[in-house]
Nucleic acid binder design. Structure first.
Ligand code: FES
Ligand code: FES
Lengths: 160, 160
DNA sequence: ACAATCAGGACTAAAATGGTCCTCGTTAGC
DNA sequence: GCTAACGAGGACCATTTTAGTCCTGATTGT
């Protein structure tokens, strides 16, 4: 239901933790303890993050990971891309030609629009924001609160 | 990877097909043929859509389904909600209290913002748009083309 | 009566997800 | 040079989700 995987969420938690003390080197185990995520899982994730270029790793004794770039320069979208592949709301919306229903189906275009819109939202969120480092807990703009209200009312599905 | 399920996609295809001839009554099998989706699957989906109140059904001989509301009054978000439950980017973002990492994890808030943003995009797309009924294939605004360019460039993951 | 058509599930196969574990290479300290 | 602390890279498994089929009713026009 339009959600990112738990693993990816964990990855952001890890990155956020590192972002809070930039420059410091974190051992995988230490991060695991700090975040309360399973050690094996943390290790696996950090390895992925290393390959994706988000963190630098140092091997050997006293090794560990540290952020490769400032937290402001890492967008949520890039994390998502690295860990789950490019965002695609529908399998057709990734590129054209995959879906054999294309002639019949006029829906694809619209989904691509939605897709881009989502991507934009994701691009606009930096790791610094995820970590709550810029301006603390930002207030929701009025526009968003409106949507939130609509969410509670739930006009769509419950109307008969 | 941030995607809606294929079933939900099919549901929109079905609804879009019905939206193109409002008032007409469609038999499940007919829609299946028209959309090239498996008949059993179509049937299952239409039943769900009926329960959710998007279509009216008529039983018996010459029965079938028809849109319960004008296509403009059905948002993509409501369809998603009905078929997959409320949109929640992370499992924590649905409501608070689920995640035991909450004290340690400062990421939740930010994801909720993203979540709302995505919801908004979804609310703004009507079934009429999905069906390509209002203004044909809308041109992408400049802003979105920019993002699209960013997508191709892929700064995030590949930077080392 | 009967055929077409929806209603509601049960069921299954396949895939994605979440998570663990093992083996190896690297490096600092002794 | 040995050893212990670390990351690299996978293989592996359990569970859940997803996608799809099928069966058994209940309705209703002809
Ligand atoms: S379902 Fe594939 S293009 Fe619409
Ligand atoms: S992972 Fe659950 S609140 Fe952040």
């Amino acid at each position: 239901m339009i959600r990112i995987s738990k693993l990816t969420d964990y990855a952001t938690v890890l990155l956020a933790a590192m972002a809070r003390e930039p420059g410091r080197r974190f051992a995988s185990a230490a991060l695991a303890q700090q975040t309360q995520i399973g050690a094996a899982t943390v290790s696996k994730l950090l390895k992925q993050l290393q390959r994706a270029g988000f963190v630098h790793s140092t091997r050997g004794l006293h090794g560990g990971y540290q952020l490769a770039r400032p937290a402001e320069a890492i967008s949520a979208a890039s994390i998502l891309d690295a860990l789950e592949g490019p965002v695609a709301v529908t399998d057709c919306s990734a590129g054209q030609g995959q879906c054999e229903l294309e002639p019949t189906c006029h829906v694809g275009r619209a989904w691509q629009r939605v897709n881009l819109s989502i991507r934009r939202s994701l691009y606009e969120v930096s790791l610094a924001q995820l970590a709550g480092l810029d301006g603390g807990t930002a207030r929701l703009p009025a526009m968003e609160r409106e949507i939130k209200a609509g969410l509670r009312a739930r006009g769509g599905a419950t109307a008969s």
